[in-house]
């Protein structure tokens, strides 16, 4: 879900392996992490993000290599979240109908029990 933008940055970083010194320094600072590694403030977020994008780049690289070797399925075989959402809505509707049916049965049972 949050992977798309990270993947975009990672892909950019992968195709720009010779990134500028500023970016490399940001990745290093971000990798050092924590209070010691980052100075704090708005720049720290950029450092942290740069380090995570660098990690994502390594994952992307490994995934592409694995896919080239035929060890991973193509990316379009993942479950579609929109279809999942529809499946859930249908399931929820079924649950409500089950509940309603049981309520109607209980009303009927009460009416039948009347003298």
């Amino acid at each position: 879900m949050t992977d798309d933008v990270m993947r975009f940055f990672a892909a950019w970083m992968l195709t720009h392996e010779t990134a500028d010194e500023g970016l490399k320094a940001a990745v290093e600072r971000g990798e050092a992490g924590g209070a010691e590694g980052m100075s704090g403030g708005p720049d720290a977020f950029v450092d942290g993000l740069a380090a995570m994008v660098a990690e994502e780049k390594e994952r992307l690289k490994a995934e592409l290599e694995a896919r080239a070797r035929g060890e991973l399925p193509p990316p379009d075989e993942k479950r579609d979240p929109v279809l999942d959402e529809i499946r859930f809505e249908v399931g929820e509707l079924r649950g409500r109908l089950d509940n309603l049916e049981s309520m109607l049965e209980s009303i009927l049972a009460r009416l039948e029990a009347r003298p």
């Binding site: 949050t2 990270m6 975009f8 993000l49």
Partner: peptide, 13 residues
């Protein structure tokens, strides 16, 4: 840290 960073990165898109 990784969680909030990812969510904010996603918001950029």
């Amino acid at each position: 840290q990784p969680f909030t960073t990812r969510v904010l990165a996603q918001a950029m898109g």
